[in-house]
Computed example of a mutant assay.
Amino acid sequence: MGLRKKKQRQQHDSAPAPHEGPAPTATDWAVELRGVRRRYGRGTGAVHALRGIDLALPRGSFTAVMGPSGSGKSTFLQCAAGLDRPTDGSVRLGGTEITGMSENKLTALRRTRLGFVFQAFNLLPSLTVEQNVLLPMRLAGHRPDRRRAAEMLSRVGLGDKGRRRPGQLSGGQQQRVAIARALVTSPDVVFADEPTGALDTTTAREILNLLRSAVDGMGATVVMVTHDPAAAAHADRVLFLADGSIVDHLQGASADRIAHRMTHLATATAPEYAGVAA
């Protein structure tokens, strides 16, 4: 097969599936990045962590983000979640432009409209499980809804653990608490950063199934950074980053296919795949 035909076949394989029905409007997007760049430093020593990300993710979707070390995954998540400000471009979450927001408004937005799940769980050891789940409501100045906390704990299989402390739970149970905490405010987006990195294979699968069920059963939107093809296979769509650019993506792919694409990612260049995730 000639080089031109091979590239055309690759681009067709990675091209986004067409939307069925009416085209989504701005309010249908849970996450929208337009021309997002992030540069650290100046001059010849500047590091270009993101090189113009154009991306729109619909509500009720599960997206995995993968790439080699240094590809920009962490910076992408931080900019998308309002934890870091892009050098150029704009970010919208749930239809709200956050790029120029004050830090106080950003903090309020993160507490009420975003959920976070981290590799290290980030639970407060002095609080009970129930209190940890209710923490986003307390921080936002809202009256804690214990019935809502109980509902979320039941959804993650910990309905009888509300009075326990995190230290009394296994790692997998602590991550379940973190998921309940992330979902308790019905956020626009849940950002998950290597959520299974500290767990064994069986427990990791259980956690990923919970995230998948949150999308399918609750209409949640999940954006997950991971290095694990088996984890990424739970997502609807996998985005591949390299050198600060989205160079490829797959939809509904198996772990083997994702691993194969990761293996060959080093040979892909951003210009060949420009715009595949727009």
Rank of each mutant, 00 (worst) to 15 (best):
Ser14Trp: 01
Ser74Arg: 12
Thr27Ser: 12
Glu194His: 15
Ser102Trp: 15
Leu55Asp: 06
Arg176Tyr: 08
Asp145Leu: 04
Asp228Pro: 01
Gln168Glu: 08
Gly115Pro: 00
Gln8Ala: 12
Ala259Lys: 14
Glu32Asp: 12
Asn209Glu: 07
Arg176Asp: 04
Thr99Asn: 10
Glu103Trp: 10
Leu33Asp: 09
Leu139Cys: 03
Glu97Thr: 05
Thr44His: 03
Arg164Tyr: 08
Lys105Leu: 08
Ser245Val: 00
Val65Met: 10
Gly157Cys: 10
Gln78Ser: 04
Gly275Val: 12
Arg38Lys: 10
Met137Glu: 00
Leu158His: 13
His48Met: 14
Gly94Gln: 05
Tyr40Lys: 14
Pro16Trp: 07
Leu77Lys: 12
Val223Phe: 12
Arg205Trp: 14
His12Pro: 01
Gly72Asn: 11
Ala268Lys: 14
Ala140Trp: 00
His234Arg: 04
Pro195Ser: 14
Gly100Ile: 03
His227Cys: 15
Arg37Tyr: 08
Thr96Met: 06
Trp29Tyr: 07
Pro24Ala: 02
Thr96Asp: 07
Phe62Pro: 03
Ser61Trp: 12
Pro24Asn: 01
Asp13Cys: 14
Met66Trp: 10
Tyr40Trp: 06
Asp88Ser: 06
Gly60Asp: 15
Asp193Pro: 08
Ala255Thr: 09
Thr221Met: 04
Met152Val: 01
Asp188Cys: 05
Leu127Met: 09
Arg4Asp: 00
Pro86Ser: 02
